[in-house]
């Protein structure tokens, strides 16, 4: 459920002053000031808790070294693999729909000739993402309830007469994917739109002169040049997706636990920490999630050529 905040869209013109030594020194001295708040918050709310979680994961309740006991415990928990399945299914549905639809929509919006219409569409896509995570899920509580939903006829046509029928266990991965898509996709459409703008007009012009139609331009020129951006989107979305928590938690509360309070891995970690008072077990789950998302991210980075430095 992460929206790509202020992703770097274009970085070209900023470097024109590189040759002038004086400017470079000034730029260097001002740089740390700009990144200081980011570093500070990352250390306080990212790095330090992560290290604390690592420590907790390898110790027991009294602080003694516990080896892999916490990991063995959580992996042996009867809910663990069920939750892995839930999250995996959700990720597959969500990532595939995100990749296909976002790229498609970005290409379509980019293809709109009228600047104003294009801007309106980008704004429309972006608006849901501007809502804070939890509040946008709250909105879905109403959308999913046939007695209050603006799309009630659609829900009824699908055979859902009550809220509890809408949120039947089999529907959950799709529901979470739709919510996540609705809240997160708009931001990515705007980012990919920016990436498309970055493609040199000369290249597009040349393709058109060679007789390429819109589909050919998209598949031969735009998609290959967007590869890094798509990989970037996948990596961030994957990391956010494995963290599935807000959606099932709010739905669980709203449905009096018909949506289980231990549906996702993060919820299981929460249950460990707060229902069972086992912070060490919770940390073990967190560390496992970290390892998995780093491994999968590495795959995307490698396959997407995200770190290759030659100019695209």
């Amino acid at each position: 459920m992460t929206t790509p905040a202020a992703a770097p869209l274009a970085a070209g013109p900023a470097l024109s002053g590189r040759r002038r030594a004086g400017r470079r020194t000034r730029a260097r001295s001002i740089g740390p000031v700009f990144i200081a708040p980011y570093v500070l918050f990352t250390v306080a709310f990212g790095l330090a808790p992560a290290i604390y979680a690592l420590v907790l994961a390898f110790t027991d309740g009294n602080g003694a070294f516990a080896g892999f006991a916490n990991f063995a415990k959580v992996i042996g928990d009867y809910r663990f693999f069920a939750d892995v399945g839930h999250v995996a299914l959700y990720l597959v549905i969500w990532l595939v729909s995100l990749l296909v639809l976002v790229v498609l929509l970005a290409l379509l919006v980019h293809g709109i000739r009228s600047r104003r219409v294009s801007a309106v569409f980008r704004l429309l896509y972006y608006i849901p993402g501007a809502l804070a995570g939890a509040s946008s899920v709250l909105l879905w509580l109403f959308v999913l309830d046939p007695s209050a939903s603006p799309v009630a006829p659609l829900l009824q046509a699908l055979g859902f007469q009550s809220f509890n029928q809408s949120i039947a266990p089999a529907n959950l991965p799709a529901i979470f994917a739709i919510i996540a898509f609705w809240t997160g996709a708009g931001g990515w459409i705007v980012v990919l739109f920016g990436a498309l703008n970055n493609i040199s007009i000369d290249v597009m012009e040349a393709a058109r002169l060679d007789g390429a139609n819109a589909v050919q331009i998209a598949t031969r020129i735009q998609l290959p040049l967007m590869r890094k951006w798509i990989a970037y989107m996948s990596v961030l979305s994957l990391a956010a997706g494995t963290q599935l928590f807000v959606e099932p938690t709010l739905l669980s509360q709203a449905s009096n636990a018909v949506v289980p309070n231990d549906y996702s891995l993060n919820q299981l970690a929460y249950q460990y920490a707060f229902a069972q008072n086992d912070f060490n077990g919770a940390s073990a789950i967190a560390v496992l999630l970290l390892i998995v998302s780093i491994a999968l991210s590495a795959l995307f980075v490698w396959r997407g050529g995200l770190f290759s430095t030659e100019d695209a």
Partner: peptide, 22 residues
Amino acid sequence: RRIGRRIGMVGIAAAAVVATLT
């Protein structure tokens, strides 16, 4: 490179969500 740094943070942020609960 900037993106590279961001990605480094993603993994850390992943742990942070749960870890801050502790």
